[in-house]
């Protein structure tokens, strides 16, 4: 029978914790970047767009290594965070940051496409009806791109559950601390006789991802019906 060890359960919990935190932290930035790419007309937008999408095309290990350089004790950000006693490398925070950076482009893409589909005339109408910029953003832009934001969030969440390369480099593979499902599976497959445990975690991973798909589709349908 397939059973989960306490270490496996902790890996599942950690995965969910990392994926949730990374998605929630990234969402406001994702909305801001999506809005910028969809509506702002400035020179050099292509460069910004490229920078945002870079983690999508770079090998996650490269992203992880660059993060390690920046957040390490000698890195620019790492040094700054050290002043406040914050340690990113080999910590849960590191796992969250790695996941957030790798999953971010997926979220922005989805939000951007959703926002581009919002007819700008609705925004113009709301402005002439007395709504200020923020008012119009919260009452028109956000609700009309709500489906895209949700699907961006679920895409990123699902991507985060499977994040391996960047996480293993920045946060390491410490059971009970930074070991998420993919890292645990990796560990099982590299020890003799670990196949069965690896398969069990694979099944957990499949069911989690499938549940997210179902929930996101369900929310989407509700949205469509209004």
């Amino acid at each position: 029978m397939l059973t989960l060890s306490p270490q496996d359960i902790s890996a599942v919990w950690l995965s969910l914790k990392v994926a949730c935190s990374a998605t929630l932290i990234a969402t406001p930035f994702g909305i801001a970047c999506g809005y910028f790419l969809a509506f702002c007309k400035i020179r050099g937008k292509v460069v910004v767009e490229g920078l945002i999408s870079l983690p999508l095309v770079l090998p996650p290990v490269v992203v992880g290594y660059l993060l390690l350089l920046s957040f390490g004790s000698n890195g620019i950000i790492g040094k700054f965070l050290n002043l406040f006693g914050i340690q990113v490398v080999f910590s849960l925070t590191g796992a969250v940051i790695a996941s957030a950076v790798v999953g971010f482009p997926l979220m922005v893409r989805s939000i951007r496409i959703g926002m581009e589909a919002v007819d700008q005339s609705y925004i113009s109408v709301s402005r002439t009806l007395g709504a200020g910029w923020w008012d119009s953003f919260f009452t028109i832009v956000l609700p009309l791109s709500g489906r895209a934001i949700l699907s961006g969030m679920s895409l990123m969440f699902a991507r985060n559950l499977g994040e391996f390369g960047a996480t293993v480099i920045l946060a390491g593979n410490i059971p009970g601390m930074t070991q998420t499902i993919p890292l645990a599976i990796y560990e099982y497959t590299s020890v003799p006789g670990g196949d069965r445990m690896a398969l069990t975690l694979c099944l957990v991973s499949i069911s989690l991802s499938f549940t997210i798909l179902l929930v996101s589709e369900g929310i989407n349908r509700r949205f469509r019906r209004g």
Partner: peptide
């Protein structure tokens, strides 16, 4: 003046 401050309906 911004559109919301102009009091002009469209």
């Amino acid at each position: 003046l911004k559109p919301d401050q102009r009091n002009i309906g469209v």
